[in-house]
Design a protein around this nucleic acid. Structure first.
Length: 504
RNA sequence: GCCGCGUUGGUCAAUCGGUUAAGACGCAUCCCUUUCACGGAUGAAUGAGGGGUUCGAUUCCCCUACGCGGUACCA
């Protein structure tokens, strides 16, 4: 029996949680839950210069909103903690040291200025960005080029240093990607990446390998932008002697901007008027707030459904999936290789579909939150069922329901006037008199009485239906007029008709 | 520049050598509804280019083009 999978999402807490990040979470979550495995959240905060206040909590909030909660995380703990890399600092040094002893890594004493000079010196038209590779390293100040005694002295003097991986020359590095199949690299193409920084913190490259090993990760899913550094990570797995425990990789396609090309960024959302982050993100430095899908009126169910289908489908025509259905249907080998352009119109369609399918009580709850005067639950759910199909975003709910709760202040009498006459005026004043006596107050009776009266006065019902709607709602929108009259009640119906009559 | 990954309608996409190349979003027209929406019907719109392999290529291989990603003591 195969091992239960252990997967992880490893964000760096530097700001808002991007769509693509949530999709990575989702695929991790679906994969883990499908196979009764564990989903781990690890915080990759090794870059202290990029620390952003509140960003970690924000990630928890987003995952909670999406209902994609991890089994293990800095917040809930777990058997392989700590789950925050800054708290694991002491672990990494030991492993870097081990690599040095085995000759798979070395000390490098080059200052940032020296590196800059190197890049400037070797920069040519054919090679605009020279790398610290197997050729260049021979010309730099490191423990491979310096006499051992000098290295020892530098170390003793606490000269700042980094530890770099010693990439082999001209070796084939290939691996099987769950989405892309066999991927090949030549080791000469990768440079000697920094493993341990001068501040003693590991870089992503060291930390991801050490932590995936220590946390017994079986499958590692990340964005396609990581594909070029895969050979470095694979070399590390080999150097450490852990290659048989290396997780299976899957490099997820990118989510692209709707117009043009390239990765979707927060800026694209600002520019084109749609959210990119899961929830509102307030930059603590600037105070600037970036809108999120949640606050824009998206249902988490719709949000993850939309994300799941951006780069994956089950091969059938089914598009609407609950989380449970996604868990059952998801498979990594049906994830596309190519990036997908984000389409906000389609995202809204998903939300619309989900609102329509939502139980009335849930929508009634949204109503209750906004209405000043509370109606009985029975009426609330009825309103919800009447307006659901008219709402694309949750923010549309109130726009389509406010007139059940308050008398319209603005009435579009201009739409009535052109065809208004005394017959119609008489009709309405007679109707109000009639309904005052009506005992049975419901949509059906109201409609038949209304039509009977119109017929008796030789008026086509259609000629008075639209005016009635405008009287009750203020404009030409909304569910059936008699349903509205039914819900707002006799008194309010008469009040609104008379109010408008007075304005005509 | 180099390395890697990719390329089916405007967008998301099905097809795992043989189809009139699905479906969805959006768009257009019509029906339903004497509002708005929902729903229904119809329509326009697709295999980057060139070579192979094959009885037969959207599908397999190669080349070209194009796009994207990477090329930090950031992740």
């Amino acid at each position: 029996m195969p091992k239960k999978p252990r997967v992880r999402f490893a964000p760096s807490p530097t700001g808002g949680l991007h769509l693509g990040g949530v999709r990575t979470v989702l695929y991790n979550y679906l994969f883990a839950h499908q196979q009764d495995g564990q989903f781990i959240l690890r915080i990759e905060d090794t870059d202290q210069a990029r620390y952003v206040e509140g960003a970690e909590q924000y990630i928890y909030d987003c995952l909670a909103w999406c209902r994609l909660e991890p089994h293990e995380s800095p917040a809930v703990g777990g058997p392989y903690g700590p789950y925050r890399q800054s708290e694991r600092k002491s672990i990494y040094g030991k492993y870097a040291q081990q690599l040095i002893e085995q000759g798979h890594a070395y000390y490098a004493f080059d200052t940032p200025e020296e590196l800059e000079a190197m890049r400037a010196n070797f920069k040519t038209e054919e090679n605009p960005s020279p790398q610290y590779n197997h050729i260049i390293r021979k010309m730099m100040r490191n423990s491979l080029t310096l006499p051992p005694a000098e290295v020892e002295q530098l170390l003793k003097d606490h000269t700042p240093f980094v530890i770099r991986i010693n990439m082999p020359e001209n070796e084939d590095i290939s691996f099987h990607d769950m989405i892309r199949g066999e991927v090949h690299f030549n080791s000469s193409q990768s440079d000697d990446k920094v493993l341990l920084k001068a501040d003693g913190m590991p870089t992503y490259h060291l930390a991801v390998v050490v932590d995936d090993y220590l946390m017994k990760i079986t499958h590692a899913f990340r964005g396609e932008e990581w594909l070029p550094s895969a050979p470095v990570h694979i070399m590390l797995w080999r150097y450490f002697g852990w290659i048989n425990d290396m997780p299976q990789w899957a490099h997820l396609p990118l989510i692209l901007k709707p117009d043009g090309k390239g990765k979707l960024s927060k800026r694209d959302g600002d520019r084109l008027g749609f959210p990119v982050f899961a929830m509102d993100w307030k930059d603590p430095a600037s105070g600037e707030v970036t809108r999120g899908f949640k606050e824009m009126g998206f249902l988490p169910e719709a949000f993850i459904n939309m994300l799941a289908l951006l780069g994956w489908n089950d091969g059938t025509e089914k598009e609407l999936f609950s989380k449970e259905e996604l868990i059952a249907a998801f498979s990594m080998d049906r994830v596309h290789k190519n990036g997908a352009k984000f389409n906000f119109e389609k995202a809204k369609w998903f939300n619309h579909e989900w609102i329509k399918r939502m139980p009335d009580e849930i929508i009634a709850g949204k109503l209750r939150a906004q209405a000043k005067n509370k109606l009985p639950d029975e009426k609330m759910t009825r309103i919800a069922s009447l307006i659901k199909e008219r709402c694309t975003l949750l923010t549309d709910v109130w726009e389509n329901a406010w007139f059940f709760f308050e008398t319209p202040a603005d009435v579009d009498v201009d739409s009535i006037r052109p065809r208004w006459n005394s017959d119609k005026r008489n009709f309405f004043s007679e109707w109000t008199t009639e309904i005052k006596e009506t005992i049975e107050w419901n949509a059906m009776t109201l409609e038949s009485k209304f039509k009977e009266l119109a017929a008796s006065k030789n008026i086509k019902p259609g000629d008075v239906l639209l005016p009635l709607r405008i009287m009750l709602v203020g404009k030409k929108i909304g569910p059936g007029v008699f349903d509205i009259a039914d819900i707002i009640g006799k008194e309010e119906t008469i009040k609104r008709v008379e109010l408008t009559l007075a304005r005509l």
